[in-house]
Design a protein around this nucleic acid. Structure first.
Lengths: 331, 331
DNA sequence: GTGATTTGCGAAACCGCTTTCGCTTCCCCT
DNA sequence: AGGGGAAGCGAAAGCGGTTTCGCAAATCAC
């Protein structure tokens, strides 16, 4: 009895019903008496029947697969979103088909045709962050497209991303709550959307408190090196500064070096807050935290993307994920 | 002419051949004259024909999907392997179906049945590292199973993982090349396979150089806190020490704090080397490196796994990926 | 020149499930 | 009692390819 694999026909035969009845009984579709339904189910279980997912997908025209387009999957932020999305979708028996680097491709048409040939059930576009917009591809698919950790220029696109304004607000609120009043801000290029929004949010809270930046906002790059230089300049310019809001953890790390090199201590003389929560991204919560930072909510973005993609009609527009202050030793 | 979608029948009709001939012409299987083949191909291109991947998968019984089992996909190491695997497989039009946390599941049978029902073409098991073995699941699938960044107790399994012995050797060789002779080693639990192998490899090179550890190997945990404590003890016990080989970057970070707290400087008094290459994992090569470390080759593991999984007959056994020294400021 | 292969192609089965449609029965209403 | 509608089920038509098999024509061997 080297029984190969049980098919629905086998179940139908064993249960003494027709193939179509068996199908409907197991799927719960159409009108089937409760008795028959139970009987078929029991029979199927007894035989150890499982639907052939391939045949099913074929018949239904839906592949149980989601296409994922990334700019660069090896980017640490992208990896977090990707892994989360894969996990959540896997729990729903949805596979993912990753097309890396094709997002930046000049001619993405071929990739799109490939994905459509696979009859994917949806598309997730994972951007490289909130600094610059991604091209809108929604109209090129007839399945739902959702944008994660990026934004497009089409307001009718469905987007789930980080709340940069709120990140800025949270950062300054946190510093104020620690009694800091002379605050400076180091961040990336002024034409970088994330840098802009974070600075704007921060400024807003500062203004509400009747304060202004201790020195003009330092625009530069997302890197550690910039943090060190800029912090040194700021300290020279405004020696009585008592806090630095750094647009990223990398900048904050650099800034910390500069603060210490100037003979000041962190956080006693100068408090430090970054953005990104790299330590957790890396260490997986197993390590003593050092830098106070703001978690932009990458995993939450991934979860929400997975949840909304398969919803019947997701509302268009941008949905922001709430960032979170992660308090540690530098404030 | 709201033409829906071109099917192979349409192509066959347009080319004036039968359906089967069209199929064979496009697939290059069976005997077809070169003239017919070309003609069909040209016709298909002209019509913009694409195979319906679902129909094809169904007919062939292969899903173009790989099952991935992880212990915990949010683990940073796992994420790297996962993202790399997804990228490489995506380039080959293979989707992945991730079953997270089901690897540790007591009853994984249900998940295995699900994967088989999907007619997956292969399975990748991504472990949580080389510390402890993963259960061997090879015999429960009729498709190839390959283990990444872990190992099993079945020698006939196909495994691609980190070379912990070589990591130990490289670390000590690097320290020796920097003129260090009084070296101590801080690492995780003695029953941790990775800790053991790294220590053994290190010891081997040390012995070849006619040296021994400056203090007995400190076994503890993979964490920063342990690194700090253990380093402090070692410094007290052997004040003339000139290098520390730390079993992980977390340990190395802690050790660095202790070294500096003791009034010694890094690397002038004490050189420091870790393992994991966290800084790159995090910063994506955009940041000034600080800690000298050893990259265990996670991305290479991912690449090789993707490459070997679809090979006709991968040789059984463990294939080790070469680790690499990443030189930075601490040596 | 004849028989044995080989080559090129088409007919049709098949992969296993979903879904439409139509046929009975049964129920309810008037 | 008769008619209309709903409930329960089965026959059969897909879904869109792949693949086996058979047949006619072309090629080969001797």
């Amino acid at each position: 009895m080297a029984e190969s694999v049980i098919t629905l026909s086998d179940v139908a035969a064993a249960a003494g019903v027709s193939l179509s009845t068996a199908s409907k009984a197991l799927n719960g579709t159409d009108r089937i008496s409760e008795a028959t339904r139970q009987h078929v189910r029991v029979t199927a279980d007894r035989l150890g029947f499982r639907h052939n997912a391939l045949a099913r997908s074929f018949a239904r025209g839906r592949s149980q697969t989601i296409g994922v387009l990334t700019h660069r999957a090896s980017n640490p932020f992208t990896r977090v979103v990707l892994a989360t999305v894969a996990t959540e979708l896997g729990a729903k028996e949805q596979a993912i088909l990753l097309y890396d680097a094709r997002l930046g491709d000049r001619d993405i048409t071929e990739s799109i045709l490939q994905l459509r040939a696979r009859r994917i059930d949806g598309v997730i576009v994972i951007g490289a962050g909130t600094s610059f917009p991604s091209p809108s591809l929604t109209s090129r698919f007839e399945v739902p497209v959702i944008y994660a950790f990026t934004f497009t220029e089409d307001p009718s696109d469905v987007t789930i991303t980080a709340d940069d304004d709120e990140i800025g607000r949270l950062a300054v609120r946190h510093l104020l709550s620690k009694g800091r009043r002379r605050i400076a801000h180091l961040t990336a290029e002024p034409h970088d959307n994330a840098a802009q929004r974070r600075a704007a949010g921060a400024q807003e809270v500062l203004a509400e408190a009747g304060l202004e930046w201790a020195t003009p906002v330092r625009f530069g790059r997302w890197r550690e090196g910039f943090g060190a230089e800029a912090a040194a300049e700021v300290l020279a310019e405004a020696p009585d500064i008592d806090a630095l809001f750094c647009g990223s953890d990398a900048i904050a790390r650099g800034a910390e070096r500069a603060v210490q090199a100037s003979g000041r201590s962190v956080p006693d003389d100068v408090a430090l807050i970054g953005v990104d929560n790299w330590e957790t991204l890396m260490h997986d919560q197993r390590v003593t935290r050092h830098l106070t930072t703001i978690d932009v909510g990458l995993e939450e973005i991934g979860r929400q993307v997975a949840a909304h993609l398969l919803e019947p009609d997701p509302q268009p527009g941008i949905r922001y994920v709430a960032p979170q202050v992660i308090t540690a030793e530098t404030t």
